[in-house]
């Protein structure tokens, strides 16, 4: 077997970068001899490990992107879209406290999330203003236009639903196809608006030159916001379980609660550690505010 054939176990991008060097090393090692079984097995193992590593990196990147934008937006949108229905639902007096507790928790978390998002915006505000002054608006204009369009559509939908609720009885509403379609379309527009605004925020963040302290604060606020949204999902699910006396929803709610308890402390801890590393790198003079990256 020719030494070059041993490289086929490696991914093509890796071969392009390191292939010639590895071949030269193999030739130096063999010194005109034939590849031994030990060397062949080492190459197979090395090549497969490289493929697994690359697949893992691609997967992590995809999950990070999805979790940082669309998942958060979709979860928030779905919660807000379901809220009016949940608010309308009534409970028997004996279990009213369950629903009231879930609703209080939900309202509290919504307020907390809003505060976290606001704080995040304030931390980034000076860098955002500098970005606009340096002519950054065209880089985000198209995304902002789409997000604003979706927001107007969602607002129009909510206004229309409100008018319908005032002019029609509950029985008429429950049998109206137009109301049902309007309700679904409004929910979709809300989800789209949240998703598109999140996309605007993510695209803008790539261009901001944030100071290390501000970056550390942003990391922590992002982790806190995701925690808050996951808590909202949990509270909403338990609320549904109480409203519908549904064991499956209760199981989902408890499972969510366990997930929040396990995942979010680690996420916040990771953000705190990363922020600390940034600050200590700054104090050692090895960190400078990030240069603007290309739009994703």
């Amino acid at each position: 077997m020719k030494p070059a054939n041993l490289l086929r176990w490696y991914p093509s991008a890796w071969r392009e970068r390191y292939g010639e060097e590895l071949l030269a090393l193999i030739q130096d090692t063999l010194d005109e001899g034939r590849p031994t079984w030990r060397l062949r097995l080492g190459m197979v193992r090395g090549g497969l490990r490289e493929r697994v590593h690359q697949a893992g990196q691609a997967g992590i990147t995809a999950v990070k992107r999805a979790s940082s934008t669309w998942l958060l937006a979709v979860a928030t949108g779905l919660i807000l879209a379901g809220l009016p229905w949940n608010l309308k639902a009534s409970l028997p007096p004996s279990r009213a406290w369950q629903g009231a507790a879930a609703l209080d928790a939900l309202a509290g978390v919504i307020a907390f999330t809003g505060a976290a998002v606001l704080a995040s915006g304030l931390v980034a505000a000076p860098a955002f203003i500098a970005f606009l002054r340096e002519g950054g608006w065209p880089k985000i204009r198209r995304r902002v236009v789409w997000a604003a369009g979706a927001t107007v559509a969602a607002g129009g939908g909510l206004a229309g639903l409100g008018l319908a609720q005032r002019s029609m009885t509950s029985a008429q509403l429950s049998h109206s196809w137009a109301y049902f379609i309007g309700d679904v379309a409004t929910a979709l527009a809300l989800v789209a608006a949240f998703g598109l605004w999140t996309s605007v925020a993510a695209a803008t963040a790539k261009h901001l030159k944030l100071a290390p302290r501000a970056r550390a604060a942003q990391l922590l606020l992002a982790a806190v916001t995701v925690t808050a949204v996951l808590t909202m999902v949990t509270a909403n699910t338990i609320w549904l379980a109480a409203v519908q006396s549904s064991l499956p929803w209760l199981v989902v709610g408890v499972a969510n609660l366990a997930l929040v308890g396990v995942v979010t402390p680690r996420m916040i801890g990771r953000a705190v550690r990363k922020g600390r590393r940034m600050r200590s790198a700054t104090s050692r003079g090895r960190y400078s505010p990030s240069a603007p990256r290309s739009a994703g």
Binding site: L22, T29, L39
Partner: peptide, 22 residues
């Protein structure tokens, strides 16, 4: 690469194959 492999074998007594080294 080759100089690295030889040096590591000299000071640590560990033979790294080309796959492991790269």
């Amino acid at each position: 690469g080759h100089a690295l492999a030889k040096d590591i074998e000299d000071f640590a007594g560990v033979r790294l194959g080309p796959g492991a080294l790269y």
